[in-house]
Write a protein that binds this DNA or RNA. Sequence first.
DNA 1: CTGCCCCCTGGAGTGCACTCCAGGTCAACC
DNA 2: GGTTGACCTGGAGTGCACTCCAGGGGGCAG
Lengths: 135, 135
Amino acid sequence: MSDHYTPAEIVHRFGFSHDTLRYYEREGLLSQVERAPSGHRRYRASDVELLDLVRCLRDTDMPIARLRAFAELVRAGDHTVPERLEVLQAHAERLADRIAELRARQDAIHHKIDYYKGVLALDAGVDSPAVLENG
Amino acid sequence: MSDHYTPAEIVHRFGFSHDTLRYYEREGLLSQVERAPSGHRRYRASDVELLDLVRCLRDTDMPIARLRAFAELVRAGDHTVPERLEVLQAHAERLADRIAELRARQDAIHHKIDYYKGVLALDAGVDSPAVLENG
DNA sequence: CTGCCCCCTGGAGTGCACTCCAGGTCAACC
DNA sequence: GGTTGACCTGGAGTGCACTCCAGGGGGCAG
């Protein structure tokens, strides 16, 4: 381990494919990644740090465009911290909403599952099962 | 209100667009929807019931292909209830995993937010702020 | 010297889920 | 009778996020 990471190491670490990493770079999520004399990329600690956040935000469905905007703020310097904070807080809010929605839907699905289980239980126990109310 | 619903009523009720409803029909999520003599669609209670579930499952990211498979089971008759149950249970499991992942990411994002808040607090109170550990 | 592997490039292709469009029908209202 | 509005059709187009491809280079093991 030296002060940089090869593409393969990054692929392994984050689970992004080579192509996805190049795509992110093209899209401005990563600033120009350093190169070895051979032309091969050398990812640095700052890239890794940003990719960590990218992983987190992509996994929570932040679109690429917003990630690029965030990355640009990071590049613009420390004075953009308030704006970055706003971006993250807005995202956290949407995420909380999304989780709440998923949980509500999850409840509905479990009700449906229970309904089907009821149907099966009746089927198993009775020759001609009664009609069941679908909740 | 009669025993059927117009396309506009369905659009209003579920928030699916006309085009999306037609797309779902083409994709086999709804079986052939009844028509008025004019050719206009007439959605019935059974369509509404299925659309309710479609809303639920789409909102929790079940792909169209799996929804079609489910719809086919529904059409095939009551003997497919065990299979439908399996589909729903598998989906519920994926959904629980997804929610757990989102919550984990949510924690990480909140840590990042707290970190940025710390930076700002230091900025506000100190002329030359100390370096802060990024968690 | 010969493979072989890892990596490079620009650009084209893919999959999914819609979404839009042009042109037409039908019923109702003025 | 004309206009309006809701709806119809098949098919093309869109947006997003990758993902794949063909062709090429550098460096090292055998």
